[in-house]
Nucleic acid binder design. Structure first.
Lengths: 226, 226
DNA sequence: CATATTTTATAACGTTCGTTACAATTATTG
DNA sequence: CAATAATTGTAACGAACGTTATAAAATATG
């Protein structure tokens, strides 16, 4: 599996690559996202990536390794988006709504059809039988939980939550809200409906009303319009 | 698709069936549950049902119709279990915990490996591309939401919730809690961990602490030990 | 007991699956 | 300009896919 190792490499001996690995992986992710791991053939993957099957195998290994790489890349992007939303000095409700809006821009891109969450829509299906996928899912879920809990602990320290609030319990609900949105997006729910769910959940978690336009920043994720 | 219409039928003309339709469907569901729709071949299905492919087709149509029937049966069973848990004069916290315990007995049977929720683990993956499956998922989710909301409305009337509580918002969280449990079960989470999640969520929803052994009735679902 | 009817099991249908040999192509190296 | 090295596209591999034709088997009817 010879991949480019560094930008300042001596040379490139043989015939040059006709593809960009990152761009190909992006397209492959897009394909798995819609039809899942088992439901996506290598022919369709190759067509989406604009690569021939042998090139695909040289670059990524096999179908399974390719999916794992797509899954890892997805976690990186979504975890970063969630952390960015929760970071900073925003009020708790705004931070949470920002996180849900970021998720929504992944789940329902402004261009293209709704597809929900890559993990919940495709990886969860394989997780029971596939130990590697299961581990990736479990680890990712745990990290999101931890990010929410950290933010809720901060909120309590700052007096944004009542002193007797349970950050761990509220973090569970914050994660659960993201999960239910991911599921409903894949089941065809409208964006506005899902945002309303996010708003209601945030109200309960924060213990105060949240306006409909809270944190409506129209941010554009890089993954949004692939 | 000639199926038995009534128990008091005149006779049975040709060679008698060697299978029981309901028992076969149960086994088929079990198989789809683990490996999903796309990931389960008809050979495996036939083996699980103890039927040959032609009998399978005569009884159910084709693979797709068979899956839809399994999905419909699953919704019936789980909706009934949820309604039974929420019905009656139990305190709200006990009713919710009973619903989560019922779900857990589906997701992690006491005999056999964990498998999560059939809908969230297998149907959600197909929902994006398959309109019929998508509709079944959307309808089922809506019914669970409605059941939770009705119970929460009752709770507010009974004074179990503060008068300014929002039953619709709390219902979203009650459903979301079930969804996150379903996802985590498929990702390998332990039963105790998931029950703790249910307990914490119930505490927040009800606005009061919930003991760890609340509603621990060890009920046995018919689907639990298939 | 022959006929009609239904389900059975076997085996096959053409297609698609994931994967890989192979030879042609395109670059660098000496 | 050879020689070497890497990647390309094509075409193939056997296996598995969903589905169905076919004929034997098992029942009720007349």
């Amino acid at each position: 599996m010879p991949r480019r190792k560094s930008a300042t490499e001596p040379a490139a001996r043989g015939r040059p690559r006709a593809y960009d690995t990152e761009a190909a992986l992006k397209q492959v992710t897009e394909t798995f996202w819609r039809t899942g791991y088992s439901g996506t053939s290598l022919d369709k993957i190759a067509a989406a990536a604009g690569m021939s099957p042998p090139s695909l195998y040289a670059a990524f290994g096999n179908k399974h390794a390719l999916y794992l790489e797509a899954l890892a890349r997805y976690w990186e992007l979504t975890l970063a988006a969630t952390r960015e939303a929760l970071a900073g000095d925003r009020p708790l409700a705004e931070a949470l709504m920002l996180a849900y809006d970021a998720a929504l821009s992944f789940y329902i891109p402004r261009k293209g059809a709704a597809r929900g969450c890559f993990v919940i829509g495709t990886a969860v299906a394989e997780a029971v039988e596939d130990a590697e996928i299961r581990k990736s899912v479990a680890t990712g879920l745990r990290m999101i939980d931890a990010d929410f809990e950290a933010r809720l602990c901060t909120a309590r320290e700052r007096g944004e939550l009542k002193q007797d609030a349970d950050p761990a319990a509220l973090a569970v609900l914050a994660s659960a809200t993201m999960h239910t949105i991911a599921i409903r997006a894949r089941a065809g729910a409208r964006r506005a409906e899902l945002r309303e769910i996010a708003r209601k959940a945030t109200s309960v978690i924060c213990g105060c009303p949240v306006e409909a336009d809270c944190a409506a920043t129209r941010s554009h994720s890089s993954m949004e319009s692939e």
